[in-house]
Design a protein around this nucleic acid. Sequence first.
DNA 1: CTGAAAGCGCTTACAG
DNA 2: CTGAAAGCGCTTACAG
Lengths: 332, 332
Amino acid sequence: MAGIDDVAAAAGVSAATVSRALSGRGRISDATRARVRAAAADLGYVVSSAASTLATGRTSNIGVVVPLLDRWFYANVIDGIAETLAARGYDVTLYSMSDDPAQRANVLDVSLRRGRVDGLIVLSLQLAEDELDRLLALELPVVGLGATSGRLPVLRIDDTAIARLATEHLLALGHRRIAHIGYSRDGDPGFDTPSLRRRGFEAAMADVGDATALFRPADLTLEDGHRAAGEVLDLDEPPTAIFAASDEMAFGAIFAARERGLDIPHDLSVVGVDGHEMGDFFGLTTVAQFPHAQGERAAATILGVVEDGADAADAALPFELVVRASTAAPAH
Amino acid sequence: MAGIDDVAAAAGVSAATVSRALSGRGRISDATRARVRAAAADLGYVVSSAASTLATGRTSNIGVVVPLLDRWFYANVIDGIAETLAARGYDVTLYSMSDDPAQRANVLDVSLRRGRVDGLIVLSLQLAEDELDRLLALELPVVGLGATSGRLPVLRIDDTAIARLATEHLLALGHRRIAHIGYSRDGDPGFDTPSLRRRGFEAAMADVGDATALFRPADLTLEDGHRAAGEVLDLDEPPTAIFAASDEMAFGAIFAARERGLDIPHDLSVVGVDGHEMGDFFGLTTVAQFPHAQGERAAATILGVVEDGADAADAALPFELVVRASTAAPAH
DNA sequence: CTGAAAGCGCTTACAG
DNA sequence: CTGAAAGCGCTTACAG
């Protein structure tokens, strides 16, 4: 691989001039710049990231901290991030955090301290206070996406409002016995996404005098949505509608209803949250958020901080009720 | 952030000794090593990746080249890769390649030349010959996963065998009129995954004297599987079974059947390929491959090349027919 | 506008 | 076993 000296020799200038011609920093004559760029293109020369980083302190690389990689939602977010960052000349490196304490510690105390990134996007992560301390100790620009914390700037949808929107849609259709399935962390501080959704649901239900709110804790997965929905459907007095905290859970609920010979929406209405690409096929009514666009926005935000020293502020992300065939007035 | 000199001072040794104590390279007394490590842990010192890379030429980072990030299959593969690599102290940076020529050129000619990685895993990529030239010009260890090329070592499932397995399952059930839906690239060299699957399908059908093979080109997506399946189902003489080249397409086929009031498997049998996590809920018979395990294996392979100079060889990946409720003998 | 030189933070022959 | 010093490939004040 050609180095800066090869380019310098080819263009008949010094390495310093090559650096200036290629980076665009510093004064340089148009003629020299053109000559150097031509030589560089000719040799296929690209600045070595390590050398450049060491000299400048900048990496042109953004880290993305992800809870799990195999979910539809995150895959879309990351795609949006990668696309935006690539267009701005940045690479993205992934730091996936599982539930394993040793693995989490390794990411926080080792990987992230290697100085490989200029900034960090943290996806929907529940960080313990001391983990957050260690994250902030990195002294790196950080922006959270869907994450929850008063200690770092976060882009997020208003989970309470989303839950309220979904619930009120069901109430407006005439449902009065509605179950919510969503995760509720033990002893959580009340700030995480699932809790907020539950809160919105319960607030909306409370606004109507005669409504009965059921709740079943479950993970945001198809399997667990299936299980939890099955449980409420098997109650002596099952609900006429289910509000699932994610579309994948809602799919699970639809399968659970189908297994019980229930017709949707005649016997049961189902609403989800996310705007999953399969929602259309399931005819699922949902509150769509836009993960790809969220990724783009998070990327733009972190670049603003990294490149222009902008202050990242909390921001509310858009969402939208998409009514499809899975919701209707209750039968009885 | 603490530097190597801080650790050296704290431990009362030279920077050289700190480097040796932390890297494990070179002779060093147990006592000093312990003292240095304690000091480093104390200060939260981690070697700067840029400085270390510049000095050694090694990055401890592996690049993953991905066609699209938002598909279930790739998300699982990447998860497997990231998990394995993280356990070995490597980071992973993503290079996503779209269909846009400018974007592809940028990845190949710029991003990848920055020297940020020790090796590359290339996922299911169709690279043009000249793109492959440029990839190989990087002189980086590379392993393909599911990709197709005689020019780099590739881990892949035997697509022809998979298609044959799925088709013979349907034939054994008594189906004689079977449609295959799968992508067929115009003027493709006949080596890509979809073509090989089509070939396996047609070979299996040809082995049976009286079987009729139908084919409909389609992308490996839910939408396009839905469309293509709809088209064959609307034929005057529709097939009694559909072999879809991916599970997502198969889901589309199931929706298409459902929309036409067809019962699965009574009126139509459906087989897919992949082992998608939702397959169980759809009761989909499929030829499962194991993307997470594939990712782990690709990661282990590239590390073998990078760390031990092993020769990566082509290898066949396991797959398995999983029979569920979507296939049965034809009705008539 | 351009070049010589120091420096970024490590690693590793080379001495001892 | 340990340290002093050169060097990895850039960038950027500092001179001119």
